[in-house]
Structure formats: structure tokens, C-alpha cells
């Protein structure tokens, strides 16, 4: 695969993974290693004061020295909250301003609130943040977020954690065809073939969390997803055959032993 370039850094892996929902930090570390991911998302929260003092923190297991840490604004329902979270993230990570912007509109579907997303994106970009933005598969909004200055647009395949895979291939295709920034499908992927389909549409990457963390065997699913993203990328770049209504024989008829009409 050619390298994925984000915020002037190049990545061998086109799979970005979340760090939530695992049974423990050890499983998180093993699964992420199996994905080959080089960028991982984290959430920004109040520290659990009074927890077991020997309990290690996530960044002790998933080191910012080894991985690009992509803090998200999960749980934010307004632009104001998202902006505050991004500023806290930058403070935690020593001034680094690469963030995943998500501003939610509804607790049941976790669908993004596009009005607040656009508002937050505009303010954050002006403040020097490098935004990878979670959005719907609406092609017009995707282009608007790109025009605002987001470095990557991340349309959902389906609701977060739903495992449904891409619900509207034609919208994703439209977004990809009109984009000049990397398009990374984020949310809703369920299994390996879903990830391959994302890449076969020409997307630049996939971001997932639940599909791996909540699989029966997360480390095995992590390995499957790594291969799926690579397979989908290669299939897209190989140039697939067109779909035909009728058969087209794979073996020549000339010289056939039998006279079949």
C-alpha cells in the first residue's frame, strides 16, 4: 500500500483503531498490535480519583512515543463542549493539536449534529487544530467540512457500534470522488468484509473500535481487519472487472473436444 499522509506525517497502515470497550489494557495492547495500526483514538475524561493506585493508565500501555494519539470529542453535544475538550486534549498531549472532532446530536443513534460540527470545525481550524472530522455520508456536508480546512473527512458507514457496514455505498463513492483530502470511513463497520468494501470504494482508510473490541476474539478480529484493509486497497488499485448480466467463459471455445451448440 502507498503511505497514508495525515498532518504531514506518513503512515504505512490505513487502519485507525479506537482503544475503548476492551476487557482490559493488556487486551487493548495486543489487539492494537495485531491491527498494525499506527494511529489510535482516545477519549478525554475526568480522572477516576481514588482508583487503585497501582492501576496503569492507557498511555502507559499505548505510548505516544510509538503511536499517534488521536483524542476524540466523544460525549460532546455542543460545539462549545467539543472545543473545550480539544483544548484539554492539546494540554494533555503537550500541545499537539491533531484531534478527531465528533459532535453528537442524539444519544440513541449517536448521529452527528452537523450544525454544531460545522461551527466547531470552523473555530478549531482557525485556532490551529488539525481536524479529522466525524460526519454523516452527506456529500455536501463532507465537502463543506473539507472547505473549512479539516485535514480528513470521516463519514460514518452506519451508527457507531452498530456493525451494519456501509449503508449507502453511492454516498461514500460520491464523497470520495469529490474529495481532495483523505476520506476515512469511521463508525459502523462490523466485520472484515465491511472494511474491505470501504477500501474497494476508494476510501483512504477505515477507523473502527467496536468491531474489534467486542468481537468474540478481538486479537483475531484485529488481524482479520488488518488483512481486510490491505485486500480492499489492493483490489481497488488492481481495477476490478465490470459487472455483467450474463456469463463470460473463462476457458476458450476454440479447439474444444465437443461440439456443443
Amino acid at each position: 500500500m502507498s503511505k497514508l499522509i495525515l498532518d504531514n506525517k506518513s503512515y504505512n497502515s490505513r487502519l485507525i483503531v479506537g482503544t475503548g470497550k476492551y476487557k482490559d489494557l493488556n487486551e487493548t495492547k495486543l489487539a492494537i498490535e495485531a491491527t498494525g495500526a499506527e494511529m489510535v483514538t482516545v477519549a478525554i475524561r475526568r480522572m477516576n480519583i481514588g482508583q487503585d493506585k497501582n492501576k496503569l493508565n492507557l498511555l502507559d500501555f499505548i505510548s505516544p512515543e510509538k503511536y499517534t494519539i488521536l483524542p476524540n470529542t466523544a460525549g460532546c453535544y455542543t460545539a462549545e463542549d467539543a472545543i473545550r475538550t480539544c483544548n484539554l486534549a492539546a494540554e494533555i498531549l503537550g500541545g499537539k493539536k491533531l484531534v478527531k472532532l465528533e459532535v453528537l446530536g442524539d444519544k440513541k443513534t449517536l448521529y452527528p449534529n452537523l450544525t454544531e460540527t460545522l461551527k466547531a470545525a470552523e473555530i478549531l481550524v482557525k485556532d490551529g487544530f488539525k481536524i479529522m472530522v466525524y460526519t454523516t455520508d452527506d456529500p455536501l456536508v463532507a465537502k463543506e467540512l473539507e472547505n473549512i480546512g479539516c485535514i480528513s473527512v470521516m463519514p460514518l458507514a452506519a451508527p457507531i457500534g452498530s456493525g451494519l457496514g456501509i449503508q449507502n455505498k453511492y454516498n461514500i463513492l460520491s464523497i470520495v470522488e469529490n474529495a481532495t483530502v483523505p476520506i476515512i470511513v469511521d463508525a459502523g463497520v462490523g466485520t472484515a468484509s465491511d472494511a474491505s468494501i470501504v477500501m474497494e470504494l476508494g476510501c483512504d482508510g477505515v477507523l473502527m473500535n467496536t468491531a474489534i473490541a467486542c468481537a468474540d476474539n478481538p486479537v483475531l478480529m484485529a488481524s482479520a481487519m488488518k488483512k481486510a484493509v490491505e485486500a480492499g486497497y489492493e483490489a481497488f488499485h488492481a481495477g476490478r472487472i465490470i459487472k455483467k448480466k450474463y456469463a463470460s467463459a473463462s476457458s476458450p471455445t476454440k479447439g474444444s473436444l465437443f461440439d456443443n451448440k
Binding site: 475503548g20 477519549a43 480522572m47 492507557l58 494540554e91 494533555i92 477507523l207 473500535n209
Partner: peptide, 10 residues
């Protein structure tokens, strides 16, 4: 006072 850190998330 808020003490804020990074935890697992998607």
C-alpha cells in the same frame, strides 16, 4: 479543580 486524562475510546 478538574484533573483530566486520556482513557480508552473510539
Amino acid at each position: 479543580i478538574g484533573i483530566i486524562n486520556a482513557i480508552g475510546g473510539g
